[in-house]
């Protein structure tokens, strides 16, 4: 599709609650490309947790409340392969035979995962302004297999001249999050995430980036529990920092302090970019 004037942004519950800066950064990236962003405040959750637990009626009630929030025929951008996959591939299943099936299908057809949208629709061109850094990338299973867009994060990182990608072994293997899996089968999940941590640590990367907050919370949380964690960041936040001159310096602290950082006032450029959502197209280049 060609570049739209305006898009919807669906923030996802994990980003809402734990990584809000990633959501802010994602919106800033989109706006900088001259695209206006609408964030329906009534959004909650895509319904995936209940769907994956077998509670379909409960999932559908939530999903139903969400599909009503995106009436305009414009893309819906989601900074998560998992939540995007829920809307794109599972809403059609969840609403099969329901009175609002057509509406669900229509919404599903407009869903883009963030990195997919940046690369395939916006054809974003990034200029790296940051210091040299080595990153390991964790690609989520849902971005890989449900959305088929796992390589877009790599495409974006490849544009950054001072970023060196390091590859952990068994990169495509699941980190063991799996939503409620992590607590329903904690032993298996622990064994998976600890191995994932080992492989990422072995790369000696300065930073871990990914396109899904669930995986990052899992891997980052495990590293943090061990101590001496490699800091982790959502790709949106990382990209914004690398490409926005006035951005805050790279954090050297892991998750626990991460959320505090979001409490700092936004830098001026970011604030301007955000507040002028509807009106500052000309400054947003």
């Amino acid at each position: 599709m060609s570049k739209p004037d305006t898009v919807y942004f669906f923030g996802t519950c994990l980003i809402d609650l734990i990584y809000p800066q990633a959501g802010v950064s994602a919106i800033q990236l989109i706006q900088r490309e001259g695209v206006q962003v609408i964030f329906p405040q009534a959004q909650t959750c895509c319904g995936q947790p209940a769907w994956n637990s077998g509670y379909r009626d409960e999932a559908r009630a939530v999903a139903r409340s969400q599909i009503a929030l995106f009436p305009k025929p414009i893309p819906i951008v989601i900074p998560s392969g998992s939540c995007a996959g829920m809307m794109k591939t599972h809403y059609p299943e969840l609403f099969a035979g329901q009175p609002d099936e057509a509406q669900a299908l229509e919404v599903a057809g407009r869903v883009y995962e963030l990195t997919e949208f940046l690369v395939d629709v916006l054809h974003i061109e990034l200029k790296d302004l940051g210091e040299p850094v080595k990153v390991a990338v964790h690609t989520s299973c849902s971005s890989r297999r449900e959305m088929g867009v796992a390589d877009r994060i790599e495409t974006l990182l490849d544009q950054l001249a001072n970023v060196t990608k390091l590859e952990q072994i068994r990169k495509a293997e699941c980190c063991g999050f799996g939503g409620t899996f992590a607590v329903k089968q904690p032993e298996i999940s622990a064994s998976m995430v600890l191995e994932k941590v080992d492989t990422i640590r072995a790369t000696q990367a300065d930073r871990l980036v990914g396109q899904d907050a669930g995986c990052l919370m899992n891997i980052g949380g495990a590293m943090e529990k061990q101590g001496a964690a490699i800091p982790h960041q959502h790709i949106a936040e990382f990209l914004w920092e690398r490409t926005n001159m006035a951005s805050t310096p790279l954090p050297s602290t892991p998750l626990r302090n991460h959320s505090h950082r979001t409490e700092r006032p936004l830098n001026e450029a970011a604030a301007r970019s955000l507040s002028g959502v509807e009106g500052n197209k000309e400054t947003a280049q």
Partner: peptide, 12 residues
């Protein structure tokens, strides 16, 4: 040979 029950939710 029995008919498949109607109205089963489908996915995949």
């Amino acid at each position: 040979r029995k008919e498949t029950p109607p109205g089963l939710p489908l996915s995949g």
